[in-house]
Design a protein around this nucleic acid. Sequence first.
DNA 1: TTGCAACGATGAAACGTTTCATATTGACAG
DNA 2: CTGTCAATATGAAACGTTTCATCGTTGCAA
Lengths: 329, 329
Amino acid sequence: MTVTIKDVAKAAGVAVGTVSRVLAKNKTVSEEIRTRVEEVIQQLGYTPNSLGRNLRLNRTDLIGLVIPDITNPFFAELAKHVEMMASAEGYSVLLANSHDDPAAEQQQVQTLLGRLPSGLILVPVSESRIGDLVSGTNTVTVDRPLKGQTLVGVDNRRGGYLAADYLLSLGHRRLGYMGGPQILDVARERYEGFISRIEEFQQQHPSRSFAIQTVDGNFDYRAGEELGNRLLRQQHPPTAIATASDQQAIGLMRAAADIGLSIPDDLSIVGFDDIPLASLVLPRLTTIRQPLAEIARIALDAILKRSSATECKLEPVLVERSSTRAWPA
Amino acid sequence: MTVTIKDVAKAAGVAVGTVSRVLAKNKTVSEEIRTRVEEVIQQLGYTPNSLGRNLRLNRTDLIGLVIPDITNPFFAELAKHVEMMASAEGYSVLLANSHDDPAAEQQQVQTLLGRLPSGLILVPVSESRIGDLVSGTNTVTVDRPLKGQTLVGVDNRRGGYLAADYLLSLGHRRLGYMGGPQILDVARERYEGFISRIEEFQQQHPSRSFAIQTVDGNFDYRAGEELGNRLLRQQHPPTAIATASDQQAIGLMRAAADIGLSIPDDLSIVGFDDIPLASLVLPRLTTIRQPLAEIARIALDAILKRSSATECKLEPVLVERSSTRAWPA
DNA sequence: TTGCAACGATGAAACGTTTCATATTGACAG
DNA sequence: CTGTCAATATGAAACGTTTCATCGTTGCAA
């Protein structure tokens, strides 16, 4: 039998409510009784039962986190930041994977909501149909939008723009773009940003000869390798490629190595996200960094109602490493 | 105001207990009332409050998972499997990172236990001093031991043994071993297994010339690269190296590439774990696979009291890929 | 008719808290 | 001595369930 607040009260010869007030560090309790109760607590090894507490207060101090796949370094990083910050504030994190499957997502969100978390941080599946499920709940969406929910993420257009701008400034004129799944707004926006800078450039320099090729597919390593082969195994391959994820970029590196292209001498690559592996791969990957810690921070603040932002687009930043190089004119 | 079971009861004109029995799909309720109640539930959009339920039943259907770092692919994979299996059984996962810091670990375990999870799955920090904290709770330890708690993991000695055996069988006679932090039993055991096969071999072939060099450090990419440089930049470097983690192995690959060694022609490498990246890196990494899905399964079974194993060492398996090659005599 | 199973439904207790309206006390001013 | 006030402690209610002992009906056998 575990010891309850009632036992403490009896043992200390006080009322239950008094013990509660002692625990709450409330001022209105005499020094004498406070120490007596604290002794008894120590003695009996009493530890408050959170279930009773939760019921009474109608709160759980839980934060639900639903992501496509914890195995994806990007989401793992997100989870890490969310967990760190949440636990620093006394919250715990309920983790669930949706495996990019709408049905699984719905299921996961449903059971997580059933646990009455203080809030839900969600990276929705592309064709997510859980809009009404989460409507009315304290939900924040990260990375991908969901109608009616507040979104925090990077400015993807800007990210794509930065990548194009950088490659152009290096003198590259035969460009490739490796996009993510085009159902995802994230993927489309990055692409649009990339293209917009290109068009801008072409208008400024109408005479320049210019080429651009595009492919798209999943965000993962394997897709990067496949799409890379498509881009590289042809007559006049690009001299520089921007990708929609670091994982793609790393896959692309392999494809290039297979063909015998050396990076950055024969091919410049710029990734997206800046996952930990990006700075460890050889050559170190130039990439568009998503400020994940900041994203997590803002998402959490929104959940905890410290901010009332309804949408928050953060500035991505170009991280120059050694997978890119100027292209001689 | 959210709708409670009382509201449903009133609206359906029945007792609260009856509604409860309808929800429990108990047999002892007449068809007529069952449908009536179900209609009302539908109508009011009633959804049972788990807090009340938790208190009454004294159970949470939560599983605590405390790991060093979700960002580590190995633990991410573990977390994924645990989460999948747990949620398939109606449990949710509470995630916490210890960052390999004993103090943080203690803190995390404490708050997680405070939430009264049905069980705790723990990868303890090396100098963990939380033995008494978890003693008496339903805890299972994965990968690393904790006195008095049931452990499930791979047979690390066997893993090391397999690696050595394989490299010897390929004809390598100048071997290197890259170990993990020697405070960790895991790391020591792998090393011992490796060495034991070597000694065995030397006794069988006392005449053969033979060399073996050892270094150790952290499990991560960076350590792999550094240690790799130590092993490779010398007079007579090994022709084959076994590592204590795939991350180390991948770091080692980079070090080798830097030096201009080609894998597997100049150097064979065998990793440990078989993280997803192992089969994606070029060349694909030969490695000692940990059956993580099985580990997760068994840990969960132990937590859910379906098994009463007090220790469970699983058989690692050698996965042959293309980072290893026979060495000409 | 009586008795008695069998079945369904009821009401209340219990789970462990927190909080709020009271009650008790002592001190102190009038 | 009375009245007031502040300071503390008390007891009970409430949070939303589940369960268990109880009760009321029926139907049926004796």
